[in-house]
Design a binder for these strands. Structure first.
Lengths: 168, 168
DNA sequence: TATATGTTTCAATATTTATTGAAAGTTTAG
DNA sequence: CTAAACTTTCAATAAATATTGAAACATATA
């Protein structure tokens, strides 16, 4: 496989994976394109490379910037805006984890907290079973959140040394 | 909030979260319904509780069984099939992680392996940059997979004791 | 200031994905 | 064996989601 095909394949696969995880395919493809791009690209170039419209490009680039995965780059002497991606995969992963936690897990946790205050006879077997189930889920998510926070705050090196050993 | 409302709210939120993570909303709702159900339910009851069709129920229940999240239950003296969910949240989490790894991460890893064999001048800066990027992603996913495997194989207690301490 | 270059918005449209429901298939009890 | 009870399938349809493209908006240059 040559470099051009390999890049196309990477963009394709990254896009499919994104869509399976609830991330818009185009957004994932733009991200992939910029991860493997040798230089920052303009909106124009992104459009061409992925055969997508200007509007689509603009919206998804904005979303990616919002996630912290892309940055605008100023190129002296150029009117156009250039975009570049974070290439450190550890940082990419933590950024994505952080965003998804914030957007999807946190609201669920909020709901769980409300649900543990369900009223009713505490001796009623049904009420008891429900609050216990919710309690267990809360305990689990609480733990998962702590782990995630630690990972997000951690330095890459820490991951590749300590963390690695502990899980072997 | 009373028990009935709380249950409805839980099903609703679990469904929304599922859809944000690329899991069909109805599938997540059926799962939620059975997690908080006091007894195993029939397809009939699932249909009624969620106001969904027979076909939809059947398809999503099958998928959930395929994921290992639901089981058929034989109730003596009953013709109908009953369904029950795994209620241990740790087991639920590991089952989901295992399935998603298998279905979505593994194919990506396969592609990455192909991509690292890109042909071309190894001194070409572009080829070099590409293979390096792919190499880094592979290293990362390899590590993530190991971690996941360990978690999947681990006992719940281990998570709640050792793992917990290490991440504090 | 006028014009060209570049960016953003969003209603219309296309695409993808989920759902229905009725027919076909299967199993059990009598 | 056969009728009733129950389950599965899948083409048609509905609903959700993504994409386009042209007009409005913004900004730099001459």
């Amino acid at each position: 496989m040559n470099l051009t095909d390999a890049k196309a394949q990477f963009i394709q696969s990254w896009g499919i994976m994104g869509s399976q995880w609830g991330i818009n395919r185009t957004m994932a493809q733009i991200h992939a394109l910029l991860i493997i791009a040798a230089h920052p690209l303009t909106a124009e170039e992104i459009m061409e490379q992925l055969s997508i419209s200007r509007g689509n490009t603009n919206m998804n680039v904005r979303e990616l910037i919002d996630w912290g995965l892309l940055q605008k780059v100023i190129v002296p002497g150029e009117r156009k805006e250039f975009f570049t991606a974070e290439k450190d995969i550890w940082k990419v992963a933590t950024l994505i984890m952080y965003q998804r936690k914030k957007r999807e897990l946190d609201p669920m946790v909020k709901v769980l907290n409300q649900l543990s205050e369900v009223e009713g006879d505490k001796n009623d077997a049904d009420v008891k079973a429900f609050t216990e189930t919710i309690g267990n889920i809360k305990k689990f998510t609480g733990q998962a959140e702590k782990t995630l926070d630690t990972m997000i705050k951690a330095e890459e090196n820490w991951f590749w040394s300590s963390f690695l050993k502990l899980f072997k």
